[in-house]
């Protein structure tokens, strides 16, 4: 073997050893990467939602700035400016309102829908519930397509909408009970979704978040009762609360 060939052989051998080391000791499994991906993209969807909210006032300011042309008559400039701004607004709004989950404008769409909520309490709750249902439908559609990015975006928007509804609802018992009932239905839908796609942690987050929202609503419905009533059997005595729970779990 010549020195030249020996050098090639040495490099090949070293390359083989480094490759073997990399593949056996350092390479991640598919499950690990999928887990990291789901978590990172859920963060990305949330960040994107915040970015859409933060950027909106800046866009309005930019559109409202006066033009700096000096040669054109002021009237023409104003008409042109207004026309251009109107066309831009109509076009942008149409694009934003049609944006599917996971797309660049989706979070802007969610934000605009939140801005357009009615002020009257019953109408506002009804619209909140419509939007929550819409987000859930989008999540289901994304899951059916196998689009994990859209799924994460829709579920992030779902969680934000549930938060907003919980914050807006006040203490009216009928409204509290109605929203609680709706969220319980959604939790069941999400649980079925999680069973189909167990690797999607964003679904687990949404279930967890809906369950917490239900607990909050229950707390407001029954402010004097404990968060998790024990349903002690009648006549069970003062210390029967804990036993009641155990009995119930045993029965299941």
């Amino acid at each position: 073997m010549s020195g030249y060939e020996g050098g090639f052989a040495a490099n090949d051998r070293l390359e083989d050893l480094l490759d073997a080391y990399r593949e056996t000791r350092l390479a991640p499994s598919g499950a690990v990467l999928a887990r990291i991906r789901a978590n990172v993209l859920a963060e990305a969807a949330s960040a994107s939602a915040m970015m859409a909210v933060a950027n909106r006032p800046r866009l309005v300011e930019a559109g409202a700035k006066p033009a700096r042309w000096s040669l054109a008559p002021r009237f023409s400039r104003a008409v042109f400016g207004l026309g251009f701004a109107a066309a831009l607004m109509v076009g942008t709004t149409a694009a934003v309102m049609a944006a599917p989950p996971g797309s660049a404008f989706y979070n802007a769409r969610v934000f605009l829908e939140t801005l357009a909520l009615p002020t009257q309490a019953d109408a506002r709750l009804a619209r909140h519930e419509e939007l929550i249902q819409e987000r859930l439908d989008e999540a289901e559609a994304a899951a059916a397509r196998g689009d994990t990015v859209a799924l994460a975006a829709a579920l992030a928007a779902y969680q934000a909408e549930v938060d907003a509804a919980t914050a807006d609802i006040g203490t009216d018992q009928t409204r509290l009970a109605h929203l609680e009932e709706e969220l319980a239905k959604h939790t069941a839908v999400l649980t079925a979704l999680a069973a189909r796609l167990p690797e999607q942690s964003s679904i687990e987050h949404a279930i967890d978040m809906s369950s917490k929202a239900i607990t909050k609503l229950q707390d407001r419905e029954h402010p004097t009762q404990p968060t998790h009533p024990t349903h002690a059997p009648q006549g069970g005595g003062g210390s029967g609360g804990g036993n009641g729970n155990e009995d119930r779990q045993g029965g299941n």
Binding site: L26, A27, V32, L33, R37, G102, A104, V149
Partner: peptide, 21 residues
């Protein structure tokens, strides 16, 4: 950078393995 989650997902797919290793 404009908030497109799908684009960030593709960047993740390209770099996650090397970063992990």
């Amino acid at each position: 950078q404009r908030g497109d989650t799908a684009a960030f997902g593709r960047i993740f797919d390209a770099y996650a393995g090397p970063i992990y290793r």
